[in-house]
Design a protein around this nucleic acid. Structure first.
Length: 504
RNA sequence: GCUCCGGUAGUAUAGACCGGUCAAGUAUACCGGCCUUUCGAGCCGGUGACCCGGGUUCAAAUCCCGGCCGGAGCACCA
């Protein structure tokens, strides 16, 4: 009907579908993207958002997605982190088609290394780190660059056999020492690391650096589009160059600036420091933007997904997101699915004269069929202290879903009131309440760790002690609820009634 | 310091490649109203931005130059 009369009006009110901008040079059915985590720390929201982008694009073009662990530095990589990433991606609903670890492919990397050496495109360099760095800076070649191929072949064997020790030699690419792009100035391709690897153990001692490993892997995995943050932008030229030497195909690069959130550290080192200093408890502290942290915090993976698609752009512009943008989406998603409960912070006793004894059924949601709980009421209640502050004798208040009371007297520790009527009165303030049959509830209220000025926020985690209605004990650990006139919270503990505040 | 990259409302973005339809769209925040037995959600309306200065052009948010500000890289980390 409306379609016929005013199709444009209908169109206007239809919620716009949030879409990702098209991927350059993408052909349906042929796109391959990848998730390339380094399993050297816990997954955080930045990894997640990047992962969502790679996943959404693969899906959008009916393509494929790789999960590929970039684990070529045995000194940094730890087994527990592999699983942390897998679990994290799954939590966000990211499904991948293939999975591998770069550490599986060392023999393959060696074959390519041999080829580069034999063709005179790479050389073993025994300069110290300082010499190498200076040469790069000065754009000067070192003597090793001119070594005959046979010498390089033999030194490479010494690297592999253990005749050369860690730190004494690396395999370098013959790049361009005068390039404006510093990464092109004969970068290290392989180095010796005498440290067991969590997956392949002591089998190898010569490990590829990021650029050669990524260059080869992206090609042999058939990756068509590399979506990554802009700190890698300078590597495009190098990785493409390596692939051109090896006869491998280049992907399309789409780069964007890092995802950051206001007042929230994401760098592994910084988070580790905060834990060591006891400023935050663990990696899953609700103030942290690790996946474990935001999960405990009660944020929905779908909200982060929508946020990534709708509020994010593939731009180089430096941006720092305000948490409020994410909360708004989270709140909208939570609203129809969370049960409402009464929680009374800073409670004050209210004695109601003439109170009828009642058995009432209170709905768990104002509009959704989420069920009811029944409550027995007498003449004693607790309500938030701030709701009686400033009230005078004769002021009327409504206990939500119950009845109206008239204030007789407010003292420091209690309120005396009189029953008025059960019907809803226009313009009467409505408050939540609990009976004497309350349960004690603790709510942790997380805030940003850093203030605007860069200083630590002294109130980054507040604790609120409150009285909850009896039914709070039915809330399951991990369940999200809305405490009316207080905010959305998630139960954090299966045994005690500890909650974490999500947002208002 | 050097090399690259970027600067649209308080915040995040669309538009910029292919200059006019952009007296700049959207989300969020804020303000006002409606609805509601929550200060939640929803609905309606409103305030609010093209970093600065030159240049090219009939016409510049969009192209060019300079300045200012911001970011990234300059590892045997990824």
């Amino acid at each position: 009907m409306l379609e016929e009369i005013a199709p444009t009006l209908l169109e206007k009110h239809k919620p716009k579908e949030k879409r990702l901008p098209p991927l350059p040079y993408a052909e349906p059915g042929k796109v391959v993207t990848r998730l390339p985590p380094e399993p050297s720390g816990y997954m955080h929201i930045g990894h997640a958002m990047s992962g969502i982008l790679n996943y959404m694009y693969a899906k959008m073009y009916d393509g494929k997605l790789w999960l590929r662990f970039e684990d070529t530095n045995p000194r940094k990589v730890k087994l527990e982190y592999y699983e942390n990433f897998r679990k994290g991606y799954k939590w966000f609903g990211i499904e991948w088609d293939y999975e591998k670890c770069n550490s599986e492919d060392l023999d393959l990397y060696y074959e390519y290394a041999n080829e580069l050496i034999r063709r005179g495109l790479a050389y073993v360099c025994s300069c110290s780190r300082e010499e190498m760095s200076r040469g790069r800076f000065m754009m000067t070649e070192c003597a090793h660059r001119q070594q005959p191929v046979e010498v390089n072949v033999s030194l490479w064997k010494d690297m592999l056999s253990g005749a050369l020790k860690e730190g004494t030699a690396v395999l370098r690419l013959k790049g361009d020492m005068t390039s404006k792009n510093t990464v092109m100035r004969d970068p290290a391709l392989f180095r010796i690391i005498e440290h067991p690897h969590p997956i392949v153990g002591d089998k190898y001692r010569v490990w590829p650096t990021y650029d050669i490993a990524a260059a080869i892997e992206d090609a042999i995995c058939g990756v068509t589009h590399v979506l990554r943050s802009s700190e890698f932008a300078l590597r495009d030229e190098l990785q493409n160059y390596i692939r051109s030497l090896l006869g491998l195909q280049n992907p399309v690069f789409v780069e964007y600036s890092r995802f950051e959130f206001k007042g929230t550290p994401l760098a592994k080192r910084e988070i580790r420091r905060l834990i060591e200093q006891g400023i935050v408890s663990r990696w899953d502290d609700p103030r942290l933007a690790t996946v474990d942290g935001i999960k405990r915090r009660g944020l929905l993976p779908e909200a982060i997904k929508e946020f990534t698609i709708s509020q994010t752009g593939l731009t180089y512009t430096k941006r720092v997101y305000a948490w409020e943008l994410l909360y708004a989406i989270n709140r909208r998603m939570l609203d129809p699915i969370t049960k409402r409960y009464f929680l009374v912070p800073d409670p004050i006793l209210v004695e109601v004269e003439g109170a009828p004894e009642l058995h009432v059924e209170l709905p768990y949601h104002p509009s959704e069929p989420l069920g009811k709980r029944s409550v027995h009421t007498g003449n004693k209640f607790y309500i938030p202290r701030k709701d009686v502050q400033g009230l005078k004798e004769g002021d009327v208040l409504r206990l939500k879903h119950l009845y109206n009371i008239s204030i007789r007297e407010v003292t420091k520790d209690s309120v005396k009131a009189t029953f008025v009527s059960r019907d809803v009165l226009e313009g009467v303030p409505i408050v939540q309440w609990v009976t004497e049959d309350y349960v004690k509830v603790k709510v942790l209220v997380p805030d940003v760790l850093y203030q605007e000025n860069g200083q630590l926020n002294p109130d980054s985690l507040k604790t609120i002690h409150a009285f909850g209605e009896k039914a709070c004990t039915e809330i399951k650990c991990g369940e999200r609820v809305q405490f009316e006139r207080f905010g959305f919270c998630i139960r954090d503990d299966a045994n005690v009634l500890d909650f974490i505040f999500i947002h208002a």
